[in-house]
Nucleic acid binder design. Structure first.
Lengths: 342, 342
DNA sequence: GTGAAAGCGCTAACAT
DNA sequence: ATGTTAGCGCTTTCAC
């Protein structure tokens, strides 16, 4: 447990001032190449490591980005994290991550911690029951950029990274209609969350545009878990007349629902066609493979961090590009394919 | 973007010295209760937030735990992360997370960053091609605890958190044998990684203990991906005589392998019984549902952080409990069940 | 129970 | 191209 080497030690070793050492180590142009070289050598030789706290304290910057996410252990969110980590590390930023467990209460606590940790910027996917975003006010006040992704909030001082959920749902629903479905159930999550509200909208628009009636009773709102999928299946089986298509806001729930319907003796997609959402690995394993919307989580993570860092570096003005919309795509597989594709 | 409030501002406001403010804010016993109270009030009123950098700089402690993980976007690893985050946040620690992408090269770079970030402790699940752990030497030298989990390395100065992979594999294989399997294939990952080496061992021991021959050609080593599962299936189909059981080190790969076998016209578990590993959500969605080993990822994350913090707080000596073994469990489902269970 | 003073290690003005 | 100086905000002796 030997003592840490500081720039003073190096300065003494090389015979220059600490300032020069500091400059050399930060690759400041106004330092003689030879001096720089010597400083580098001595530094590594002495086993020097920069003290980020002293540096941060001085620079009032942390090179740290905070992330608040509903749940870490979700296929989608962990892809997002992976993308974020990649870009952040490449750019020399650390990521500190916390989960709200989907509750506003924990989200507020997390926001406080992030604020105290003086993150340079914050990336947030909102909790289910977040009613307002007052808890991010301190960030806005201090000019710390807050960037929402996936589950976003409208706010003039922050950017959102999303996909066009209305359009994606519209495409999914239209696809079902094109496959001959006339009574399409929509299973989705809490409508307070933008993504689910938008998907419901897209579903509705698609019906209307194809002269199908929108029927409130065909919309099932639940928490999109495994059990919810099974429960939804029994609700569907009880409907009269029986629906012939289901559009679910989540693959995992869709897969479970599909299995339950199969077990009840229905054939997929013959009796009921099914479309999920997210393109999780699970879609390629169930039988039949699940038609779904490809939602680029990894890419979303990359874009989120990149946007934030660009802003921090003064390369872009976040408030101008208020919303970044990523491309999503319908992927047609066996669970919905009744007719040969065009 | 107003200026930050410091303890000096509070000191002025209350009419005491900064020292007293610092002590009060840290709940030091030798401060008058009334003074403390007043200081708290003024502090919150002024919107004070402690500057962790100044504090860390002074205390030479960061309240930050580093995590190096192969891939964030894996079902197992993200469960682990979730467990870690929970315990860390509760204890007032931040988590900084980085992924090695399974390569030693990135792992070494990550270790360096973590070292420079002066994490109080490090949690590591090793990369595939990590040949030695010299890159953690700086931590050992400085007395920073390094704790390995899941993919661990033997090292006298560090604790490992694992499950008994030998035993788990032994149980899985024995189960297949009890179901009447005689020629059991084992699909697993790179044998340099302890978990896969141990599972192979468990598989081997189970065969021997039940008087079945161990046959090198029945062991398939691949990267356990989706494609690897499908590829493995065709290898199995080409084997003569055909195997009647498969034990796969990973559910996702197992599920894909199973599907490929089904598509080739084999019946599961009739022709071939299958057992996976990890108890991922996918196991409950495929058909038949996949028998697997329940691997407590979330719990592992909790235990890892808890152990580390206990050590940091001086509550436990990590070097004494050199290995923590969590319980794992065989979960029998349709993919392997040929006889009524005992 | 409270305060004065020093210093953690670094960087940014401002010289030279 | 390099050095001097000051200070980021906090904690911790040591003194009263």
């Amino acid at each position: 447990m030997d003592k840490d080497i500081t720039i003073y030690d190096i300065a003494k070793g090389v015979g220059v001032s600490p300032t020069t050492v500091s400059r050399a180590l930060n690759d400041h142009p106004a330092v003689n190449k030879k001096t720089k070289q010597r400083i580098y050598e001595i530094a590594t030789q002495m086993g020097y490591r920069s003290n980020m706290f002293a540096s941060n304290l001085r620079k009032q910057r942390t090179n740290t980005i905070g992330v608040i996410v509903p749940h870490l252990n979700s296929s989608f969110q962990s892809s997002v994290m992976a993308g974020m980590e990649k870009v952040a590390t490449e750019a020399g930023y650390n990521l500190i991550i916390s989960q709200s467990m989907g509750t506003a209460e924990k989200e507020i606590a997390n926001a406080k911690t992030m604020f105290n940790s003086r993150v340079d910027g914050l990336l947030v996917s909102l909790a289910t029951d977040t009613e307002n975003i007052d808890h991010f006010e301190p960030f806005f006040k201090k000019g710390v950029p807050v960037l929402f992704y996936d589950r976003v909030a409208e706010h003039k001082q922050s950017t959102s990274i999303i996909i066009d959920n209305v359009q994606a749902a519209y495409r999914a629903t239209t696809h079902l209609i094109e496959q001959g479905c006339q009574r399409i159930v929509h299973i989705t999550g809490n409508l307070r969350i933008n993504v689910y509200a938008h998907r419901l909208k897209g579903y509705k628009y698609a019906l209307i545009d194809h002269d199908l009636p929108f029927n409130e009773s065909l919309v099932i709102v639940n928490d999109l878990t495994e059990e919810a999928g099974i429960e939804a299946a029994s609700q569907i089986l009880a409907m009269e007349p029986r629906p012939d298509g289901v559009f679910v806001s989540n693959d995992f729930c869709a897969a479970n629902c599909m299995n339950a319907l199969k077990q009840a003796g229905l054939s997929i997609p013959g009796d009921i066609a099914i479309v999920g959402f997210n393109n999780e690995p699970i879609t390629r394993v169930v039988e039949p493979a699940l038609t779904t919307i490809d939602y680029p989580g990894y890419e979303m993570g990359e874009v989120a961090v990149r946007s934030l860092i660009n802003y921090l570096d003064g390369l872009s003005d976040i408030s101008i590009t208020n919303t970044v919309t990523l491309r999503s795509e319908l992927i047609v597989r066996g669970s919905s394919l009744r007719k040969p594709q065009v």
